[in-house]
């Protein structure tokens, strides 16, 4: 996970262990900054991840994600 807290830019982060790889966040992201990882997590899903740039902190991915703790979005 990228540590963007120091710089005042919005970002999202995915807990790769809680993500079930449904990809619903990818479809709703207006900036297309979320992608699916090639790696498998311990539940054998391909988790989503933030590509690292241009997140606006809109939070749409958070609400599209069915998992309570998988996505976190910070908008400074």
């Amino acid at each position: 996970m990228t540590d963007n807290t120091a710089v005042a830019v919005p970002f999202m982060e995915v807990n790769p262990e809680l993500c079930k790889g449904c990809q619903l966040c990818i479809g709703v992201c207006p900036k297309s900054v979320i992608a699916i990882s090639q790696k498998l997590n311990s539940a054998s899903y391909h988790p989503a991840y933030y590509t690292g740039q241009d997140c606006t902190g809109c939070g749409l991915c958070f609400y599209a994600c069915p998992e309570p703790g998988a996505i976190r979005v910070i908008k400074p």
Partner: peptide, 29 residues
């Protein structure tokens, strides 16, 4: 503004059986 897991949820789902006590039992999507 922070979008994150609501405090109205348990932080750890202790009642859930098996491992992965922070993920729900629901299917992907």
């Amino acid at each position: 503004k922070v979008f994150e897991k609501s405090p109205s949820f348990y932080q750890v789902f202790e009642r859930k059986s098996g491992p992965a006590k922070e993920a729900t039992h629901y299917c992907p999507g």
